[in-house]
Design a protein around this nucleic acid. Structure first.
Lengths: 216, 216
DNA sequence: CGTACTTTTGAATCGCATCAAATCTGGTGG
DNA sequence: CCACCAGATTTGATGCGATTCAAAAGTACG
C-alpha cells in the first residue's frame, strides 16, 4: 500500500504507527454492501478513504435510523474497545476503506505513547467539532446556522469551503435551495462577501434594519 | 470533599484516580460568571456538577456563538492538552463545578492505565452520542426526531426520560410546544405509548396511511 | 456531444416558531 | 395548612420561513 500518497491526502492517518500500518488492508466498497452487522464480533477498526459509510440501526418497522455518517476519517471510533458492533455499517456511496485489526489497534494504543496521545487528541477534537455542530443544528434559521458555521469552522470570519454547496447545505441541516437563497440574501445585504469558495463574514454589523422595504 | 456522595450522583467521576481527586477543588458558580476566557492559559479541567456552563465565542458584531453547552459532566474535554482556551466559558445557570489541575490530569492520564482507558472510552462514547444527536437534528420533522431519539437513546423502543419535557424539547431542537403537540398526536395515532416518563414506541407500524383524509 | 450533477430561480404548501394564556406542579414561607 | 410563587405543562391562533416540487441554466467529465 502506498502510505506516502495516502497520508498526503488523509492527514489523520499520519499518527498511525508503521507496525500498525503494515496490518491494514484496503478494501473497495460497493453501494449497499455491509461492512459489519449489529451483534457481529468486533474484528476491525475502519477508516473511510472515499465514499460514504453509514452506521444505521434498523427499527421494527423497517425504518433506518442513521447514527453516524462518515465521508472520510475513522469510523465508529466508539467501537474500538467493545466486544461487538452495536449497529450495521452500510455503504451509502462507493469508495474504499482501510481495515485495521482491532487487536493490533488496541495493542498499539497501549504501547505506543505517541500514537495514544494523538488518538486522544483526535477523539477530543472530533468531539469538540461534533458538539459545535449540534449547537449549530439547534439554531432555527438558515442565516444563524451559516454564521455559526463561519464563526466556528472558519478563521477570523473567513471559511474556504472544501465541499460543494449542496454538501454544505446537508451539513447545515438545510435543503440546498434554502442555502442558496439565504447566501444570496446575506450577500445582498452586505453581511457576507462571497468569492467562489471563500465566504467572508463582514466586519460591520449585519443588521441594517431601518431601510423600510426592499427599496422603492 | 464527599466523594462518596458525589460519585453516587455523578457516575462519570468514578474513574478518577484518588490521587487526582484530592487535587480537585469545588467551586460554586453564579450566572454570568466566567470560568475562563479565550486566550487564557489552560490551568484546569472542569467538571460540571450542577447548573449550566456554555462555551461561547464572541463575534465582532457582539453576537454569542455557543460552541457547547454542558449540564453535568466533563466540560471542554478537547482542551485537555492545549496550551490556551479557545473559547469563553460562561455560567448560564448557577450551580457548581469541580476544577482539576490540568497538569495533574495529564499526568494521571499518562501513568494510570485504568484511568486512561476509562477516559478513552468516555471520549469515544461521548463522540458516538454527539454524532447520533447531529444526525437527529438533521431530521426535518418533530416526529422523526422523537422516533430517532427513542431508537438511539432508548433500549428496545423504550426510553425513560430523566429530564423535563421542556429540556427534552431543547435537546431535540424543538420548541416545547411543538414537542407537546407531536407527542400527543403520536399517542393518539398509536405510534407511542406514554406513561409519565416512560415513552414506548409501539411495535406495530406507525404508518396507517390509506385512510383517505382525516376521516369523513 | 451527451450525461450526470450542481447551481440557480420560481411558486405553493406545510410545519414549526412565536405569541398568548390557562392550568398544573412542586416548593417556600407565613 | 394555605397562600403564593416559579416553573413546567398544555392548548389556541397566527405568521413566517424552510421544505417541497418544478424547471432552467451552468459545469465537469468521458
Amino acid at each position: 500500500m502506498d502510505w506516502e500518497a495516502l497520508i498526503e491526502s488523509q492527514p489523520a492517518l499520519a499518527v498511525i504507527p508503521p507496525k500498525l500500518r503494515e496490518l491494514a488492508a484496503r478494501r473497495d466498497t460497493e453501494t449497499g454492501e455491509m461492512l459489519f452487522r449489529l451483534g457481529d464480533r468486533l474484528r476491525d477498526i475502519f477508516y473511510v478513504v472515499a465514499g460514504e459509510i453509514r452506521l444505521v440501526r434498523r427499527t421494527r418497522n423497517g425504518m433506518d435510523i442513521v447514527m453516524q455518517r462518515s465521508r472520510g476519517g475513522f469510523f465508529a471510533e466508539a467501537s474500538f474497545n467493545t466486544k461487538v458492533y452495536h449497529c450495521d455499517a452500510v455503504v451509502a456511496r462507493p469508495g474504499a476503506v482501510l481495515r485495521f485489526p482491532a487487536q493490533a489497534f488496541r495493542a498499539a494504543l497501549a504501547t505506543d505513547v505517541v500514537f495514544r496521545n494523538a488518538w486522544l487528541v483526535h477523539l477530543a477534537h472530533e468531539l469538540l467539532k461534533s458538539r459545535a455542530r449540534c449547537e449549530r443544528l439547534g439554531l432555527k434559521s438558515a442565516e444563524q446556522r451559516i454564521i455559526h458555521y463561519i464563526e466556528s469552522e472558519g478563521a477570523d470570519g473567513i471559511v474556504t469551503l472544501s465541499e460543494s454547496r449542496k454538501a454544505w447545505a446537508a451539513e447545515l441541516g438545510l435543503t440546498h435551495e434554502a442555502l442558496y437563497r439565504t447566501l444570496r440574501r446575506l450577500q445582498a445585504d452586505g453581511t457576507l462577501d462571497i468569492d467562489a469558495d471563500r465566504i467572508i463574514l463582514s466586519r460591520r454589523k449585519k443588521r441594517t434594519p431601518p431601510v423600510t422595504g426592499s427599496a422603492s
